[in-house]
């Protein structure tokens, strides 16, 4: 029997971690006697931002983390960030295979699966957001919390005054009024208790989560063929089932939030299209700029965009 050690980027209570642990259970059940995943913990076991290096170096065999936590090594993860598709379509069209290949070449890790996809990000604000005459979002009065993932969009397009904070500090920053707006995924606001301070959700949503399972390549290649097959099959199943599960969860969260008084402000027409285009294009720009500086260059750039972005899937 093969045994893999694993850690996850976020604390155990977060919905995304729960989803990963479900995957682990499925593998351990299906792989009994062949493959076992031994979860060692979350950020308390290996620091959030050190996990990608840890799996590369073989300290741990498997990590569940957003690609954004290793953006410095693999700027191509922005293809997932800017994607308007889910793991279901991109598994089908070969997108994930390409991402896997890039992971193997650039980081020496196997990209096993893109979980919890199909969840996008909203801007959430304390006060009613202001729109200009063109219906565009006016962020001039907002104290917007940012981080490395959002900022290309927030500062360059929206022109916002961004305050960089890690997730763990946002609650107290909202509480004290250090920030009064933040981006976050459609799900999870309630778990983080940020809904105590945030009253408006701005639609449309942008970006996509980029959570994936990566496995040390030497470890992967040392596994029995049977173990590899089970891992890959269960991962592909979980890619699909997690999309469904999280959509249900999103609808529940939205309903619960609306019941508590969360109001939805929707950008319309051209303003919405510009907003989405900017989120996407600023992210692609960043990806292209960083790819240029790395070995291999922008060779995969066009193909990545083609596979992870389908204009037909945008809200019309």
């Amino acid at each position: 029997q093969d045994t893999l050690t694993a850690v996850h980027a976020f604390p155990e209570s977060l919905i995304y971690t729960q989803s990963f642990l479900e995957f682990v259970d499925k593998v351990n059940e299906r792989g009994e006697g062949v493959i076992e995943i031994n979860v060692r913990g979350g950020p308390e076991a290996i620091g959030m931002f050190q996990q990608p290096d840890a799996v590369r170096n073989g300290v741990v065999d498997m990590v569940y983390t957003p690609g954004s936590f290793y953006a410095g090594s693999l700027p191509e993860k922005d293809a997932l960030v800017a994607s308007n598709l889910t793991a279901i379509e991109t598994r089908e069209n070969g997108g994930i295979e390409l991402i896997d290949q890039i992971h193997q070449e650039k980081m020496g890790v196997k990209y096993l699966g893109w979980f919890d996809s199909g969840v996008c990000y909203n801007l959430w604000t304390r006060n009613e957001p202001e729109l200009d005459e063109g219906g565009n979002l006016d962020v001039s009065g907002l104290k917007l919390r940012g981080n490395a993932v959002y900022n290309a969009f927030f500062t360059e397009y929206l022109g916002a005054q961004v305050i960089d904070l890690p997730t763990t500090d946002v609650y107290s920053a909202l509480e004290r009024g250090v920030v009064d707006a933040t981006g976050w995924t459609q799900i999870g606001l309630i778990d983080l208790k940020w809904n105590e301070f945030l009253n408006y959700r701005i639609e449309p949503c942008f970006f996509s989560t980029d959570l994936g399972v990566i496995v040390n390549l030497d470890t992967w290649e040392g596994l029995s063929e049977e173990a590899q097959t089970i891992l890959q099959e269960v991962a592909i199943e979980h890619e699909q089932s997690s999309v469904e599960a999280l959509r249900t969860k999103r609808d529940e969260d939205f309903a619960a939030l609306e019941e508590q008084g969360m109001e939805v402000v929707t950008l319309e027409g051209e303003a919405a299209a510009d907003y989405l285009a900017a989120a996407r294009e600023k992210t692609w720009e960043r990806m292209q700029g960083l790819m240029e500086e790395q070995p291999g260059g922008t060779e995969n750039y066009d193909r990545l965009i083609e596979l992870f972005y389908d204009p037909a899937a945008d809200p019309q």
């Binding site: 953006a71 410095g72 090594s73 490395a148 900022n151 960089d164 960083l290 500086e293 790395q294 070995p295």
Partner: peptide, 13 residues
């Protein structure tokens, strides 16, 4: 590996 430290900027590690 041409690693970068990713914050507001990408700094060579």
């Amino acid at each position: 590996r041409s690693d970068y430290d990713v914050r507001a900027y990408f700094t060579p590690k």
